[in-house]
């Protein structure tokens, strides 16, 4: 579903935090674009403004400089879905009510949307836990439910802010694969922020590498498993995967040692 049209473009985006301890320049000069239907991963040293980029794209934060442009066929701003590090399922609501949260907030509890939720739950084998409390579910299941809560609002663009980092390694592998499959089969554009290089390589079409703060884009690496006939299900076992991993690892190491 990849097309060559840019969908989001960031032009020289800057962002600074102000606090009583002084100004912190988080983003210095962020420049990249995301094509429709693509999966972009942003990787960088910890403490750099990875999450800030997502907050800026989603409009939660206003950049202190630069522009963000959305290209869309309709004359409407794109709908953006956001997945946070923790699932934040509310313990006083059951699974279904948790998924409804976004629709309630936007007053979009239409029959079509409710049907969409039912279909998603059915399709991703979560229909049987619909009326359970989140506390009864495993971390992986909770994160998948959080994804469906996001998808219920029919977003054009998904922002994933380290959504698997709170999970244990085993669960992380399987859930990140599930989430990848869901995003691809729903034909969504996605931007993933992560500090896990292998996760980025396994999921993304493009990896954007950031420098240490103040952040700039250090490198943009296309990940081309499909071109080499490697299916996404088995990338982690391929030689190419190791090559990409090593390349990114080296660049990040350089970034950490250069001062």
């Amino acid at each position: 579903m990849k097309s060559e049209k840019p969908f989001v473009r960031l032009d020289h985006v800057k962002f600074s935090y102000y606090s009583s301890r002084g100004e912190v320049e988080a983003l210095k000069d962020i420049d990249f674009s995301v094509e429709k239907g693509s999966f972009v991963a942003i990787v960088g040293p910890s403490g750099c403004g990875k999450s800030t980029i997502l907050s800026i794209i989603s409009g939660l934060l206003k950049p202190t400089g630069g522009y963000i442009t959305f290209y869309s066929e309709e004359f409407a701003p794109p709908k953006i879905g956001y997945m946070l590090q923790h699932d934040h399922l509310l313990e006083w609501r059951d699974v279904y009510q948790n998924i409804l949260l976004g629709l309630e907030i936007r007053k979009l509890k239409t029959p079509q949307n409710l049907e969409l939720i039912d279909n998603l739950l059915e399709k991703y084998k979560l229909a049987n836990v619909k009326h359970q409390k989140p506390s009864a579910l495993s971390g992986g299941m909770r994160q998948r439910i959080a994804l469906i809560r996001t998808l219920a609002l029919r977003p054009d663009l998904l922002l994933l802010d380290e959504p698997f980092s709170a999970l244990d390694y085993q669960t992380r592998l399987s859930v990140s694969k599930d989430v990848y499959d869901i995003i691809k089969s729903e034909e969504k554009t996605a931007i993933l922020v992560t500090h896990d290089i292998s996760e980025a390589v396994a999921m993304a079409d493009t990896v954007i590498l950031l420098t240490k703060p103040p952040c700039r884009v250090k490198d943009i690496i296309p990940i081309e498993f499909e071109k080499h006939g490697i299916s996404r299900d088995e990338v982690r076992n391929s030689k190419l995967f190791q090559q990409y991993f090593d390349e990114i690892w080296r660049e990040l190491q350089n970034e950490n040692t250069n001062q």
Partner: peptide
């Protein structure tokens, strides 16, 4: 109240009133 939960409401397009009714009060 956990600020991340309030951020969740923001990401779902909610305002301050909804932060209160959906998170702060029930929690």
């Amino acid at each position: 109240t956990d600020p991340e939960r309030l951020k969740l409401i923001e990401t779902l397009g909610g305002n301050k009133l909804q932060k209160f009714t959906k998170i702060v009060f029930p929690q």
